[in-house]
Design a protein around this nucleic acid. Structure first.
Lengths: 225, 225
DNA sequence: ACAATAGTGTCTCTTAGACAATATCGA
DNA sequence: TCGATATTGTCTAAGAGACACTATTGT
């Protein structure tokens, strides 16, 4: 029918040491055999219902992860991005807590900070930059960052996640007001103890009805806008 | 290499009678021969540098238009959207003033309101809905709607365009304050006359440096947020 | 002069951010 | 009790919307 190479790539992101990281894997095929690259591969028309399903399969096969949040990012294409020929890559991005990546049981997954990446094959650098920009932008007006937290988290923890992504401090009162308005979190019975030498923080979790959907704040969470 | 059908579809939108319209064409090939559908077609690996170039070509061939604003919308895929088999459609959307469509020299182009479409082939209805949502959303925080105006326009005209897209009235003072802050428009020498029985409005145009890029307002232009 | 809409000044109300007071833990 | 951080109350400042006043045209 045609000679276009159809693939899917997944930008699996997490927060480690207050910095966004992306999951990369050593390629086990030519081209770029052995190079660190995004988990991805050919769409299999016979088994994938659509590209989203292909992305889910790819993530599961290569990292052992089923991410609750997986969104289409954009499609990258052209004759020069893949040495094998004219290709299309439908890119997706996923956000998970760092523990989930460890629990995936694929120790070969490498986490690298999204800045200071270099020498990536194909246009993977560009794809990662687009994903980073999307996450930063979307975090400024939505509840996206909760997917980077574990199931339970405290408000100060969540605020630190937002600040890490947005790269600037957030007003504590405004932040809590916003989350209160959104009404997407619910307090968990027990407070966080961990033996910290200060007042313990209340644990929260995403309310059931919001487990897989995002909430928009309507206004930016940060000052810059 | 594979059996995936690779196509591009373009949602060409304009404003007519204060309502968003989409350009549709009667299909001249099977499947769905004769049905109204989005302008689109196969990606030609031999002549298209990438999918964006394919969309530009498609728009030019089928409507005679070179749109200054053409953005990737999303990619639609799967085994069931096209009766010929597993397919990928990279969808783009373009915004032009209604006059540009007439000037394209393709009288077979039909303009239909984005609401009340029915019986479209493939998943074109869904693609158009996604484009409509994107335009509405993006208009609430950017200068996107200027691409629906002609080269010169008055502020009251531009405000009516915003209001038509957003579907709600905008505060005049806030609207002008916002545009003033954005600093993307410049006054044109002559005022609008047209013999209206009232004070004439100043004509404006997009400043050169903003001809092809969008400006973000940082805050929503409408009340709802 | 009148009708009609453009353009502008200003007041108010909402909301974001600063500041600070209170609460609660471990040491 | 002290140090540290969580949580909450309140004041202030910035920005959006309401209102209304002035400006300019054709009839």
């Amino acid at each position: 029918m045609n000679d276009i190479i159809c693939t899917v790539d997944v930008v699996l992101m997490t927060l480690r040491d207050s910095r966004l990281h992306v999951a990369l894997l050593k390629r086990d095929h030519a081209p770029f055999l052995g190079a660190l690259a995004l988990p991805g591969g050919y769409i299999r028309a016979a088994e994938d219902a659509d590209t989203q399903a292909a992305a889910v399969r790819m993530l599961r096969e290569k990292t052992g992860i089923d991410s609750p949040y997986l969104e289409q990012l954009a499609t990258f294409s052209g004759s020069s991005r893949d040495p094998r020929g004219w290709s299309i890559s439908v890119a997706y991005y996923a956000l998970v807590p760092a523990e989930v990546i460890a629990a995936g049981g694929h120790p070969e997954v490498e986490l690298l900070p999204v800045e200071a990446l270099k020498g990536l094959p194909f246009d993977h650098q560009q794809i990662i930059e687009a994903a980073t920009q999307r996450v930063r932008n979307k975090s400024s007006y939505s509840s996206l960052p909760v997917y980077l937290c574990g199931e339970n988290f405290t408000l100060p923890q969540l605020q630190k996640v937002y600040e890490a992504i947005l790269g600037e401090p957030i007003n504590k009162v405004s932040f809590r007001r916003k989350l209160d308005e959104l009404d997407i979190l619910e307090a968990v019975a027990g407070a966080m103890e961990t033996g910290k030498a200060h007042r313990p923080a209340q644990l929260y979790r995403l309310r059931k009805c919001f487990r897989q959907q995002l909430s928009l704040t309507g206004r930016a969470l940060n000052a810059a806008g």
